[in-house]
Amino acid sequence: MGLATGIAATSLSSRRRRRIGRHVQGWLFAAPWILGFVIFVAGPMLASAVMVFTDWDLLSPARFAGLNNIRRLFVHDPLVGHSLKITTMYAIVSVPMDIAAGLTLAMLLNANIRGLRFYRTLYYLPVVLSGVASALLWRWLFSPEFGPLNYILSLFGIAGPAWLLDPEWAMPALVMMTLWSVGGGMVIYLAALQGVPTELYEASIVDGAGWWPRLRFITLPMITPVIFFQLVMGIIRSLQVFTPAFIMTQGGPLNATLFYELYLYRIAFEQFRMGFASAMAWLLFLYILVLTLLVFRSARSWVYYEGEQRGG
């Protein structure tokens, strides 16, 4: 009995040690990421949250500013509201356009056609180009006198607009430019389309369903998780848009493309107002958070997960 108890106790303690050991190993494996997150993400976020209540120019010690920066955000600086509005408009147009174009392209390239791999590579190529290189290329494409775009329009007798020099056309030009990188989404949609079970299509064909009902009742519902993912990422990405305006328009003409992040950058690195820039960064973070939560909430009504048990 005593021996049995002893063996049992030893075995228990050995099991506990193994379990603890496994926990330690798990934490150690996760440690690089956790440390990276704490040092490079959480730490700076916390610091910027504190900076919201200070005036700091990077060069002299920070001074406590109370709620001045928050007040300035909502009352004294009209460009904050303007840039947020501009950026939201950009997101409203560019995100659905990006999803629609990516999905259409993926469906076209999901067909069994000659040169499929070539086309897929071709459409994906712009994604691997640097943002700055793309922006410079598009600046040339949009050139009023020498750009190929206006040249093509002139062949049809249309006098092309001044694009990036015209306050009315600068934003549409930048939205058009987002189609350039549609290949990134295309690859993801393509993977999703190929994951749709073929027996569903076979059954629908047997039932006499045409192309449109198959798209509407099979394809789209089956890939809604991917559309949802692309929507969330697209909203986040488009609200943080910076490079095209920084390189191509400098926020102009007449602030027509003054995106929020570009204005934030100017406040921080041209005017050295880190406290106010932090307040702007937090406002954007909260704005994106709220929009993302709303999208997540809406997902319950339109995103279909295969095998998911729904209540009722």
Binding site: A162, L164, L165, D166, P253, E270
Partner: peptide, 24 residues
């Protein structure tokens, strides 16, 4: 440099005859 950037941006529509300097 900060002010001249604003002026530059405002002048772009003037360069293409979309606005007068006064308006910009």
């Amino acid at each position: 440099s900060a002010v001249s950037r604003i002026v530059n941006n405002a002048l772009n529509p003037v360069y293409v005859g979309k606005m007068t300097a006064k308006e910009a």
